[in-house]
Nucleic acid binder design. Structure first.
Lengths: 152, 152
DNA sequence: GTTTAAAACTTCAAGCTTGAAATAAAATTT
DNA sequence: AAATTTTATTTCAAGCTTGAAGTTTTAAAC
């Protein structure tokens, strides 16, 4: 077994552990949203993206930001719209595009959810102090730098 | 804004970035399984768990290991079974339990997929050398140590 | 200026996923 | 030993997700 085979194995094991951690955290946050707010993770993610952007954003920008398919973005936004939490309107110049934004009600609902959400994340990752956070930031940047070469 | 508020914010941002990274990697691996093997991530994950264990395992052990619901495990195994890649049998002593295992065909199919899968992971995380892998392992252990206290 | 190609979304079918309710077997109580 | 509770799994409805096919609008080529 060559040295790079051993390295490959370690990368695989690390990936599996990383996946487990994120899945565990997601389950934890899903539980929070369900029990306390009667909502779901995908709805929260979409609202968070809309909240970050303030201004109306294109459907395609939304799905790109969340790394989900266009069809998925359509489906989730459709449900939010039905609940009066978001709305869509055709673009002004280019009429192919659809601009989506949160409603006032949506913003209100989201802010209530986001507060507790941040608290849950904060508790879940309490082991990470400033130094660890710096370390992770650097690692993530380095991975992103090379990993995105694989795509497209 | 207190110091711990700033820390909370940083933890949240780190979580969001981590989530994006894992989602990106998952999308990459899903593409690989779909294009090269005509399969999916959940099927691969179930087969990987069965492969790790060698011996037949309880359905409940499977869903616990993958951090998915029992119903989900049932559904995915059912499809694998239909394709002749896995099979289920009632437990010997305790007849409530269902033991699941891979078939010979399943093992064969999985090993072909796993080889390329590891190569994709290896390429995706090429930025991580031995030192970085050690760092991540320590971080993950530390997070797991405290995070699991949150769960019920 | 028409035809062709490209881009932005939506629709759809199939599979994935959850959480609650149902089923069945084993363990515990009484 | 009968009744109750617990444990293991499946079933089910509703929502999530993808990728492919379809629609509509814009851009490019001719």
């Amino acid at each position: 077994m060559s040295e790079s085979d051993a390295l490959s194995r370690r990368r695989l094991r690390t990936w599996i552990r990383l996946l487990r951690l994120t899945k565990g955290a997601e389950n934890h946050l899903r539980e929070y949203l369900r029990v306390i707010h009667g909502s779901t993770l995908p709805r929260f993610d979409v609202m968070a993206a809309l909240h970050r952007h303030r201004d109306p954003m294109k459907m395609s920008a939304l799905s790109r930001e969340l790394l989900v398919s266009n069809g998925n973005a359509t489906a989730v936004v459709e449900r939010l719209e039905k609940d009066g939490l978001a709305d869509r309107a055709p673009g002004d110049e280019d009429r192919r595009v659809v601009m989506v934004r949160m409603t006032d009600k949506g913003r209100e609902v989201f802010e209530a959810q986001a507060k507790g959400h941040e608290a849950e994340v904060n508790a879940y990752f309490e082991a990470l102090g400033p130094d660890e956070l710096n370390t992770i930031r650097d690692l993530l940047k380095r991975i992103e730098g090379t990993a995105n070469d694989q795509d497209g």
